[in-house]
Design a protein around this nucleic acid. Structure first.
Length: 813
RNA sequence: GCCGGGGUGGCGGAACGGUAGACGCGGGGGACUUAAAAUCCUCUGCCCGCGAGGGCGUGUGGGUUCGACUCCCACCCCCGGCACCA
């Protein structure tokens, strides 16, 4: 018998697929847009071309591969495009390490990855391929930026921002993890710089509310986004420094504790600090403290082990509820970037305020107590439910905490000293970067006219060639003097170009729409075509993008919908986040140096073995460990499938007789279909087909052997596409990828007998093969007869008998 | 601290309230072979027993149920997110 030779087979079928354009899906014509119900858009997050693909990537892309094949064979028109997230830090840093120009290194990596993907035999529509660093693409990224600018959603301002001293650029808040740069791990600094922002905070509530429109997203991703947005309802209360005639509003979620405020605290960076201390004999000391406190690193300042520090300003504010005068302090435990940068301190009911009050011997006044019981004296009492009530709070005393919150805010509002307010943790998205390898921001500065957007017809603003692209703290683009100096489109006078580039995450915030119309030179995309394909039916990617890419893409989509560019509100209806592949106990990644690349495995064992193994290894949503040992089993399985199928092939493809093997085959169809289609379990279908192949191998003379082998080949096709096509052809058929998915015959799933499990008091005591269709009484009677059951009944009367038809009898004595 | 996910043989894992450990790896025994590889057969949770058989077993302790890896309560451990957010 001819041996299974993956190399030849795989090359052969990859050529056939390409020649016959098997996985290319054209857009619908104008009259076909109503076919929407039959389309499926399967999308995986696009790779960074910062190196080659490793086995972790292979596992990720296998998910989309199986889903795409499965849906196509169910009659759907499946679009599965691919692209490259080519701009940005990952690619640029790779170029710096490899010592080439970012464009050359990026393009080399793109070519290598594409070749790897082709060798894996993935069903991808390469007609739609895009790379975000190509002017054909980033022209439209710039165009979209200008639409955001016009809508007031892209703006420039000076603000304290996060600066990575290693990467020499500012970062978005989302790119700072525990005070460190998400990419390089360096501790970030805070700098006051003028930067570009997207007004994502204007969409904070929408991003929360419209989670309801999502069909199926993992709960943990939604939770992470909710935490990140960090919405909390409260109120703004205005305190006042009478002698300076200065109002100091605070944000609080606990207006019910206003009568318990005993001091007041400003963040060290608060802009009113200099004014407050003006003329004070201690002004210098106080300002000195404020400067030092503000300069502490974010990591240091957030360390809960470090004791809070502070200094008294000598000023007092008036509490609007009772006109009490509260001393104003400055302390590093109050953050300028949350709320108003000022707080009312209620030590009796807030742990941080309590700790500060202890340290500086400030008074503690209890105003909320449990309805029953006592308040412990040595800690803040933080309860505020229906079971807590107010005391020592004038006319509000005796009210339950929640009602008191409302009543006090209403009372303040009527006097113009407060109002309901909502606080968010989310900050605007800082999108400008002082790096070379990114999309230029299409803005000009004219001495006469000020800030001017580049006219649409002048797009793209091409990324200039520069001699030196290494990061130096200001954008390398500034060195391209001829490029920077330009003409103002409004007055014709001299103007300068914006030299910062955009964050990579801007590029990837709309690529999923561009795929629909990737070759369009006249516009970013045709809206009708975008509305046909989107939202993405199944999006697949890593959990590491739970709040970066996935939040930004949702924001972009909502803005594009609001300004009339698309007809949908959410980009990704269903999201699946797969687990990471580990090797030697750590996430497989180039930076850790523990990658296994598929190439030599493809060479030795074939792409199909890799494809199968990476899904067989465990549930795709969980992390998995690469083990060479397990790979052997898959190689054996493929060889067995090959032998068993070729052995069965000569039999005539006659009507399938009703045999045990035929029934097993139908049961396997049902299992595999349910696992992939409904449960999204991609490891168990492989086990099911293995079982079937083992069964054929054990009963080669069964008249249904050919049918069973054919079915095994058909069911494994989404996983091992090459060997499946080859065997399908050798079975005398044509094109398996176009073949409808097999259907289980319900009649063949029914059985004439079944193994009745007999329990006594819930413990299995015996099993017996019985006919289907016996009455419950007959089943109980059969069960009682069994010798082993009788010995356990021990002559005692059966008190109760539970019968699960087709399964078991449980006798209770 | 708050939120989310997870804890099952020597290992990866299966079991969608009804036979715990499918499938695969590893290991033992055997067949084929001069031999090896490949392939095939067979056994393989732990303990007691020659055996028939029995007992114990899904992180821990309770509970619901005729029946719990699965549902509920409390706790322990691991992974991830948020966290001086007022």
């Amino acid at each position: 018998m001819e041996r299974y030779d993956p190399k030849t087979i795989e090359r052969k079928w990859q050529d056939v697929w390409e020649r016959e354009r098997a996985f290319y899906v054209p857009n619908p014509g104008a009259g076909e847009l109503d076919r929407h119900a039959r389309k499926t858009y399967v999308l995986e997050m696009l790779p960074y071309p910062s190196g080659e693909l490793h086995m972790g990537h292979v596992r990720n892309y296998m998910l989309g591969e199986v889903v795409a094949h499965f849906r196509r064979r169910h009659g759907y028109e499946v679009m599965r495009p691919m692209g490259f997230d080519a701009f940005g830090l990952p690619a640029e840093n790779a170029a710096i390490n490899e010592g080439g120009h970012p464009r050359e290194v990026t393009q080399r990596n793109i070519a290598a990855i594409r070749r790897q993907m082709e060798r894996m035999g993935w069903a991808i529509d390469w007609d739609r391929v895009l790379a975000t660093h190509e002017p054909e693409y980033y022209r439209w990224t710039q165009w979209l930026f200008l639409r955001f600018y016009e809508a007031g959603l892209a703006y420039r301002k000076e603000a304290p921002v996060k600066w990575c001293p290693n990467d020499q650029t500012v970062l978005a808040n989302e790119q700072v993890i525990d005070g460190r740069c998400e990419r390089c791990g360096a501790e970030v600094e805070v700098r006051n710089l003028e930067q570009w922002f997207f007004r994502i905070t204007a969409y904070a509530d929408t991003l929360l509310e419209e989670m309801a429109l999502l069909e199926s997203w993992p709960e943990r991703v939604l939770t992470m986004q909710r935490n990140w947005i960090g919405r909390s309802e409260g109120s703004e209360v205005v305190f006042r420094i009478d002698e300076l005639e200065v109002d100091l509003p605070v944000f609080t979620t606990r207006p019910d504790t206003l009568f318990g405020a005993t001091f007041f605290v400003l963040a060290p960076e608060h802009p009113l600090v200099p004014k407050l201390v003006e003329g004070s004999p201690h002004a210098d000391e106080i300002l000195d403290y404020a400067r030092h406190a503000a300069a502490r690193s974010a990591v240091d300042r957030a360390d809960p082990e470090k004791e809070k520090t502070g200094v008294f300003t000598g000023r007092f504010v008036t509490n609007p509820v009772n006109d009490h005068r509260l001393p104003v302090w400055i302390s590093d435990y109050v953050l300028m970037e949350y709320g108003t940068g000022a707080i009312m301190a209620v030590p009796a009911h807030d742990e941080r305020d309590y700790a500060f009050a202890q340290r500086y011997e400030l008074p503690v006044k209890v105003v909320v107590v449990p309805a029953e019981g006592e308040v412990e004296g040595d800690a803040a009492y933080v309860g505020h439910s229906e079971d807590e009530k107010l005391v020592d709070s004038a006319q509000f005393s005796g009210m339950p905490s929640p009602a008191a919150k409302e009543a006090i805010v209403e009372w303040l509002e009527s006097r113009g000293r407060g109002r309901p307010a909502v606080g968010y943790r989310l900050r605007d998205w800082l999108l400008s970067r002082q790096r070379y390898w990114g999309c230029p921001i299409p803005i000009l500065y004219c001495d006469e006219c000020g800030m001017i957007p580049v006219p649409d017809e002048d797009l793209p603003v091409l990324l200039p060639e520069v001699a030196e692209y290494l990061p130096k703290g200001r954008s390398p683009l500034a060195a391209a003097e001829e490029w920077v100096a330009t003409t103002c489109p409004a007055c014709g006078g001299p103007a300068r170009r914006e030299t910062d580039t955009m964050d990579t995450f801007v590029d990837s915030s709309w690529y999923f729409i561009r795929y629909c119309d990737a070759r369009n030179d006249g516009e970013a995309f045709d809206r009708a075509v975008a509305d046909y394909w989107l939202p993405v039916n199944q999006y697949i990617g890593g959990i590491e993008h739970a709040i970066l890419h996935l939040l930004y893409a949702r924001f972009f989509t909502k803005v594009m919908n609001d300004i009339g560019l698309v007809g949908f509100r959410e980009p990704f209806a269903r999201l699946f986040t797969q687990g990471m592949l580990h090797y030697h106990g750590a996430k497989m990644s180039k930076s850790r140096g523990n990658v296994i690349v598929p190439d030599e495995y493809i060479e030795r064992y074939g792409a199909d073995a890799c494809r199968l193994y990476l899904l067989f290894i465990g549930p795709v949503e969980q992390d998995a460990e690469w083990q060479d040992a397990g790979f052997e089993g898959i190689v054996r399985f493929l060889n067995r499938l090959w032998r068993v199928t070729l052995a069965a092939a000569p039999a005539p493809a006659a009507d399938v007789p009703d045999t045990p093997l035929a029934r097993k085959t139908h049961a396997t169809i049902a299992r595999v279909t349910d696992d992939i289609g409904r449960r999204f379990a991609l490891n168990t279908p492989i086990a099911a087909v293995m079982e079937l192949v083992n069964e054929i191998s054990r009963t080669p003379a069964d008249p249904a052997a050919r049918f069973a082998a054919e079915t095994a080949v058909s069911l494994i096709q989404p996983y091992a596409s090459h060997i499946a096509e080859e065997l399908w052809e050798r079975l005398g058929h044509e094109r398996l990828w176009e073949e409808p998915w097999p259907e289980a015959d319900p009649a063949m799933l029914e059985r004439e007998t079944f193994e009745l499990v007999v329990q006594v008091n819930g413990r299995v005591r015996d099993r017996v093969e019985v006919a289907v269709g016996l009455s419950e009484d007959e089943l109980v009677a059969r069960a009682k007869e069994l010798p082993r059951v009788r010995s356990h009944l021990d002559g005692k009367p059966v008190r109760k008998a539970i019968v699960v038809p087709g399964r078991l009898v449980n006798l209770v004595v």
